[in-house]
Amino acid sequence: MRVVKAIFSHPSGRIGGAIVLVYLLVALLGAVGLTPHDPLMQYRIDRLHAPTSSYWMGTDLFGRDVMSRLMKGIGQSFTVAFFSVALATLAGTVLGLTAAWYGKGWDTVMMRFMDVLLAFPAILLALLIVTIVGPGTWTSVAAISIVYTPIFTRVVRGPALSLKSRDFVDAARTFGSSRSYILTRHLLLNLVAPLTVQVTLALAWALLTEAGLSFLGLGTQPPASSLGLMLSDARNLMEQAPWLLAFPAVAIMFSILGFNLLGDALRDILDPKTRRA
């Protein structure tokens, strides 16, 4: 509650938070099917119709309602982003915590492997994985989560290492506290703040990576819609039907802006160094 209040009294947090909330609402409506039209319905007579009162964002080459497809697409893109970031957070936290806790060989092997993963640009690595496994929604979730796991591993390992040598962990050992208690209560609980910031920022990157994969035809498969796919379809019709390109492009831009602003605000709020006393 305190954090929510702080977000909305932080200038960029207010804007970012509002944008993200609007997107979540739209994504939810899109996901449950509460769209103005059926996103798959082809209104053949109204093909490539410019925005009007019945089609607020116009129609595409097959006469499908762009707004409905956009809502569905936002739902789709957000689903992929959420699942992939959730997986990456889980995997990164477990790997980072165990690397810090057990140290030695496990730490070295794990962190060098993460370095290798980090050496590839995100989109290239995601492409590589999807090419090997084959395109689809769930393979892109897997690919994106693998791509962002090293970042979470690093974000967790560093602070976990320093927390591990803090006196309260030694104190816990003298009480005979169990390993799981120390890992969750003393390490993980203190990592919530940096993880929250990282999750917010990673959501923005995941959205962008998903859009990129779909744009290249390796993510969400037609006839389902996603932001990247819509961009890809619109590319050839850019001059005849600019609305096809404009709406999904603006949607991608604002979603990333929203998450980045929110992430920056969270960093200011949760980081004790910048937090006002």
Binding site: R166, D167, F168, D170, A171, R185, H186, L189, N190, V192
Partner: peptide, 8 residues
């Protein structure tokens, strides 16, 4: 300052 977990 270091022997008490600040989050508990």
């Amino acid at each position: 300052y270091a022997s008490l977990n600040p989050r508990l």
